[in-house]
């Protein structure tokens, strides 16, 4: 038995596809090639096998994802994760929010920011810099026209450089993409262990 997870959590759930993923033993050569460039190439997840239905998109998205989240310079990795969390909370992608809240907590060696966010949402008590970052990510995610010049001014007042602001735009926007795959194509579930 499994149940769908509806509340934000750092405990990463299982992702259960709503469509039938590509079967690895039936994958085309192009699909097998694209599956190798994903971050976890030892075991191919159901999520990646689902995306293999559109192999041309999958092949270009994995390197783009890695560059936005991990390339050196610019914004810190933890703050890029905060951009990802802002988007994922707006789109209620429980799975993405869990994965990236867990990463944020590990990078920062501190769970307080994500505890606060999951408990209080946009009313969370955050440092001025985290507040500016989270609010910008949230508004840009709600609608591209929701983020306003005042939000940009708050980022600059909080000390973000142009390079850091660019990385925030990219990480929040990237999760506009990831959430529309994860949240739309599957459910976050927890396996129930019979007592």
């Amino acid at each position: 038995m499994s149940r769908i997870v509806h509340k934000f959590t750092r405990k990463v759930p299982h992702w259960q596809p709503r469509v039938t993923p590509v079967k690895l033993d039936e994958a085309t050569e192009e699909q097998l090639d694209a599956l190798q460039v994903t971050p976890s190439n030892t075991k191919v997840s159901e999520y990646v096998l689902t995306l293999a239905h559109d192999v041309e998109s999958l092949k270009v998205r994995s390197p783009l994802f890695n560059a936005i989240m991990y390339d050196p310079g610019g914004m810190s990795r933890a703050e890029r994760e905060l951009g990802a969390i802002g988007a994922s909370m707006v789109n209620r992608c429980i799975y993405c929010a869990a994965v990236h809240a867990d990463r944020h907590a590990k990078l920062e060696k501190d769970t307080s920011v994500t505890d606060e966010l999951f408990e209080k949402g946009e009313k969370a008590d955050l440092s001025p810099r985290n507040r500016a970052i989270f609010d910008f990510a949230r508004k840009l995610s709600e609608s591209p026209v929701d983020a306003a010049p005042e939000d940009m001014a708050r980022l600059r007042a909080a000390g973000l450089s142009d390079e850091e602001i660019l990385d925030l735009i990219l990480s929040a926007a990237l999760f506009g993409w990831a959430n529309r795959l994860m949240h739309v194509l599957g459910d976050p579930v927890r396996q129930e262990v019979p007592v």
Binding site: V19, L51, S57, P144, I169, A172, A178, R180, V184
Partner: peptide, 20 residues
Amino acid sequence: IVRLCELSAFMAYQLRVVAG
């Protein structure tokens, strides 16, 4: 269905990069 989601998802990304 996956193709349609990728199109909607990519456009959500590109729109936000342009707006940002």
